[in-house]
């Protein structure tokens, strides 16, 4: 069971962005048999990238789960007993201070929530991991996952390479915070969100972006207006449509693209 916390100061839209209904079912078992998850129908890029025999090691332990908006999947300083391969939706890694919660990392269908503390053999993490776009995924118990990586050097290597790409992403977030204007940071965030979404239209409120980017809502509204004026996005109430990725990329000053390229190179062999 996942613990559900309602995050303070976290105002968001309702259930209209749920990816639950539009997603192909994960289980494809015959009627009357134990449902099995097939590697080929999955969307999680780590599960797809791993060798078939490594997937077979994990497969009996994978449980389909729904990820509800605002749900905390890993709480700060609490034991990480489960990991989550995301199929749809997004999980945010944020600083866990009460005053100002700022997103430092983003995990979508390319990722595994809980990979860092488990790969680095730490029981807990000081950060909070919560669902910022509802969706679904596959959970696996820590013990089963650790047993599989102890058996398979290839699986361990894949995990460590993923951890590397996440560290690169967080490093680039630090660079973006330090060097970019708010328009540039927003552009980077929209590109990352777009990469992990099935639609060009992203469902988000300004209040939500305000929290993600760690700035007052009025600043976000102004930045959105500026991006819209240049034809990069189209903003509607509670929605932002990505119109021109190239124009967004031009604002990011190199802060977008490095972790994405590392992922493609190290995980998918591009």
């Amino acid at each position: 069971m996942l613990s559900v916390w309602v995050i303070r100061n976290f105002l968001l839209i309702g259930d209209e962005d749920s990816c639950w209904d539009s997603t192909p079912r994960l289980s494809t078992g015959e009627e009357g048999s134990v449902p099995q998850t097939r590697q080929s129908i999955l969307r999680n890029r780590l599960l797809r990238a791993m060798a078939p025999d490594d997937f077979e090691r994990l497969q009996p332990h994978l449980d389909p789960i729904a990820l509800q908006l605002r749900e905390v999947v890993i709480a700060p300083d609490a034991p990480v007993d489960e990991l989550f391969f995301l199929e749809t939706g997004m999980v945010s890694i944020s600083t866990a201070h009460d005053e100002r919660r700022i997103e430092v990392g983003l995990i979508g269908r390319e990722g595994l929530v809980g990979a860092v503390p488990v790969a680095l053999d730490c029981t807990t993490t000081p950060h909070v991991f919560f669902v910022q776009l509802s969706g679904e995924g596959l959970s696996i118990g820590r013990d089963a996952f650790c047993a599989a990586i102890a058996e398979s050097p290839a699986l361990r290597r894949l995990l460590l390479r993923y951890v590397h790409t996440l560290i690169v992403q967080i490093t680039q977030t630090a660079y973006a915070h330090a060097s970019l204007s708010l328009e540039g940071r927003l552009a980077r965030w929209l590109l990352m969100c777009h990469d992990r979404s099935d639609s060009d239209e992203l469902v988000l409120t300004h209040e939500f972006l305000s929290m993600m980017l760690g700035v007052q809502r009025a600043g976000v509204t102004l930045a959105i207006q500026n991006l819209e004026g240049a034809g990069r996005i189209r903003a509607k109430r509670r929605r932002i449509e990505v119109l021109d990725r190239g124009k967004l990329l031009a604002l990011t000053n190199g802060s977008y693209g490095t972790p994405e390229a590392e992922y493609a190179r190290l995980i998918e062999g591009a």
Binding site: S181, L182, E183, Q216, A218
Partner: peptide, 23 residues
Amino acid sequence: AVARDLIARVRLHAVRDWFSCTF
């Protein structure tokens, strides 16, 4: 309070000078 925080922390291309802004 919002104005103070924007002045102190936020850099935007769209705004040359926060002190010329008004809510």
